[in-house]
Amino acid sequence: CRVPFVLLLYWYLKKSCWVCFGSESDDITAVWIRPCRCRGTTKWVHHNCLMRWVDEKQKGHSYTKVHCPQCNTEYVITFPPFGKFCGIIQTVDRMIYKASPLIATGVLLGSVYWTAVTYGAITVMQVLGHKEGLDMMERADPLFLLIGLPAIPVGLVLGKMIQWDEYLLRVWRRHAHKLGILNYLFPMNTYGTVRPTQPHEAPAREIKFTRVFCGAMLFPTIATIVGKLGFRKVDGNLQRSFLGGIAFVAIKGILKIYLKQQIYSRLGQRRITNYEHTDSGTPT
């Protein structure tokens, strides 16, 4: 098919908007631009039509760069000059926008830190006794207090995360046959038991954070109470609390190991019962 040359020339010269396909005769008031390297049918475009295309591409981010979809030229978009006052307001607004997350994080971390310091101070007074604790803290270097006091709860949590009883239990299971007497207390191998394979070969139980946290935070209080109840004759609050803490940890550990061992051996003595036929009931 051949198109007459005159018609081709007419198409080339006539303006047609590549967005709305309107020509000059459709709307004589419309503003035309040629914003890119394109020639031919996509050379001209209505300013308003291209503005809408740009809006569609930017999706509300009015500083995103937009390129011509045909020739990939970047459209140069100029803004009318901004008043000085508006400029200042915008700058301040942007600074606040950028600073807020930082400030919020800072406040959050700060409050966690001060909570830790307070907890540390309370713990010191609890363990050393109210008056002695206050005296000690007044005499100490402030820098040492600022670092040392928050280190107390952190240390307690970290200490609580050491699962020494699990380790002890594992060591004991491995060498149990060498300790004859203990086997009476904690039966290890009863004849005819089926040792559970899976659960106890698996790694130690997962550390549950809330439990570790509560245990660690309450530990100084418990240590003090146990110390006061069990070691009345010992002089000095610190020594008493220290002994109380050790006693509590030891007793708790032993009970835990005992319970675990019982569960373990009970698991080994499970039996599956025979299915009993009953005439009255229908099997389901």
């Binding site: 098919c1 198109v3 967005v19 709305c20 396909f21 309107g22 039509c49 809408r52």
Partner: peptide
């Protein structure tokens, strides 16, 4: 209106296409 007028123009172009061997 942009969508409607443009589709109208496009349809006119397709129907008036001289080479309709497509």
């Amino acid at each position: 209106s942009i969508a409607a007028t443009r589709v109208q123009r496009e349809l006119k172009d397709i129907n008036s296409e001289e080479c309709s061997g497509q």
